[in-house]
Structure formats: C-alpha cells, structure tokens
Design a protein around this nucleic acid. Sequence first.
DNA 1: TTCTATTACATGTATATACATGTAATAGAA
DNA 2: TTCTATTACATGTATATACATGTAATAGAA
Lengths: 154, 154
Amino acid sequence: MRKKLDQEQANYIIDVCASANLRTVSGSLTQLYNHLLKPTGLKITQYYMLGNIYTSPDISISKLGEMMLLDQTTVTRNLNILNDSGYVQIKRAKQDSRTKVVTITELGYDKLNEATPIWAQVQEQIEGSIGKAEYMDLLKKLKALQKAIDEFKS
Amino acid sequence: MRKKLDQEQANYIIDVCASANLRTVSGSLTQLYNHLLKPTGLKITQYYMLGNIYTSPDISISKLGEMMLLDQTTVTRNLNILNDSGYVQIKRAKQDSRTKVVTITELGYDKLNEATPIWAQVQEQIEGSIGKAEYMDLLKKLKALQKAIDEFKS
DNA sequence: TTCTATTACATGTATATACATGTAATAGAA
DNA sequence: TTCTATTACATGTATATACATGTAATAGAA
C-alpha cells in the first residue's frame, strides 16, 4: 500500500520535475522571443519553421513534421498561417498527388532575414550569460534527454 | 550591410537555437507524459498545477501564476478545466472580494495520488538513463538559463 | 467622504499543439 | 486488372498559452 502524497513530497516533485522545468524555461524564452520579434510580426515558432523550410526546399508536410518532431496535423495548421502571410508556397507533388511540397517564398526569405538579427541577439545574450562552454554542455544534455525520451517511447 | 542568410547559417541556427532545443525536448516529454497519463484523464500540465495548488492551499490566481511563471489569464483558463472536473475549489477571498482563492478538493487529491506513480516512473527512467548527477547538472543549467532570461527581460 | 488610480480577475482573439478520425490517392496483393 | 491496405494530408475537437482589453472592487489622494 503506497503512502499518500504529503506536501513535502509534492514540493520535491515540483522542484525536480523534468517536464515542468523544461516547460517553464521553454515558455519564458518563447515569451521573450515573441516579445522581441513583435515588430517583425513573426513568432519564434514561425521563424523556426521558416528556417527549416528554407534549408529543405520542396520538403513534404510529413517530412517537415519528422524533422521538427511535430505532429503532421500541427505542421499543416502552422503552415496555413505562414501560407496566408505569403511566406511559403505549398503545392502538390508531381509524382504523388497525395504529397504536398513546401517552399519558402521571396517574402518569407525576407522575413527570415529580418528576424535573424533578433534571434542572434538573444542567443548571444544567453550564451554570454551562462557561458559558451556551459551552453554547449546544456545542449548536449538536452540531446541526451531527447534520446532518453525516445527510448522510453519505443 | 549585413549579408543574407545562407543555408549553412540557417542549419547552424536550427541546430543551436536555445528556444527550439528546449521547445522540442519539452514537447516530446509532454507528449510522453500525456500518453502515459491518459488512463488518469490528467494532462501533465494539469498534474503540475494540481501539485502546486496542493502545496499552497488558498492561493490566489495571480500568485499561482507568479509561482508557475504563467500569465494570469492562462491560469484562469486552466483552472476552469480543473474546476469543471471537480479537482479544485475556487471561491472569493473574504477580505478582498476581487481576489479568488483556490484549493484542491478530495477528488483532486485522489487524482494527484493516482498520477504520481506515473510521474515517478518517467522521472526515474530519465534520471537513470542520463545519470543522476548529469540530471542534477542539467537542472542547474536550466535554472541558470532561466535567470539569464529573466535578466534579459528586466 | 468622494473621486481616481490601481488591482484582481475575466473575456475576446490568436497561435501552438496533439489525438481521433475522415478523405483522397497510391501501392501492392490476388 | 481489380480490390484492399496503406499513405499523406485535412478536419473536428480539446487543451495550453499569451496579449489586449474589459469589469468590478479596493486603495489612496484630495
């Protein structure tokens, strides 16, 4: 018979929970980025998706989802917003008309260039503040954590 | 005159971006938790909020938001869902009728106890997989990053 | 005491996200 | 070649989240 949770244990959970710690920091950073990116009209998620599309021209919706670790339905919806702004072009693939291929437009590429200095400013501030080596180690640990999660899922 | 972004630079950004790395890992872990918590009907965010309410009885909506680093309006909405499930009780404070105070219910406490073993299972798996000491160091770095973000915001 | 500023919460709106499921098209078995 | 299974994307629905703004109540100045 497991004992019921007392407040001390609950405080411990709140403190060490991987999910909560990641979500909180991630949320704060997203908020900071979105605030600074406001003049561009882009959100950080949109900036990131545009970047991925730029580096992988004519990528399919599913592939984009695999690359970004997002559900296909999420990609579909986020792409629609970028499409409405004219930042991407979405058309059916010639060989397989189920598949759609996505490409960044001139306008989207301009936006990407407009937002990049803002991205860099925050990134540099972060790396400077916690230290370049420390930051690289953080990234390494995040990737290890990602691997641990993937293992658990499989 | 700044040079335009080439694909190599874009790949670099995608790879090192703090926001993207955090969001991706955070999202994967949230997904894993929500999958495993499905039998309980709780989401990991709801579990976490319930835990915070349990450790701070009669907390106000704003204070809860400060504690969890969430916007007040987000707390209001997330609380409504917990309230509809009967997991929390929300009533006006006696001294100040603008303020509302939130408390966990018996039912909510039972849910918290039901979900905690699942939380623990994943947490242990993570700590075991990347190593306890490594995990603690990751937490430390996340908190350092949080501080860096807070500094930037102020 | 009265009026104004501030505080605490709610609502409108938009994006981000995933799951369950639907639809259309291709692939592959018979 | 025909039928069925699979694949690729879309849609319905729900939660999570924040910003702009509204409303009601208190605090504080005059």
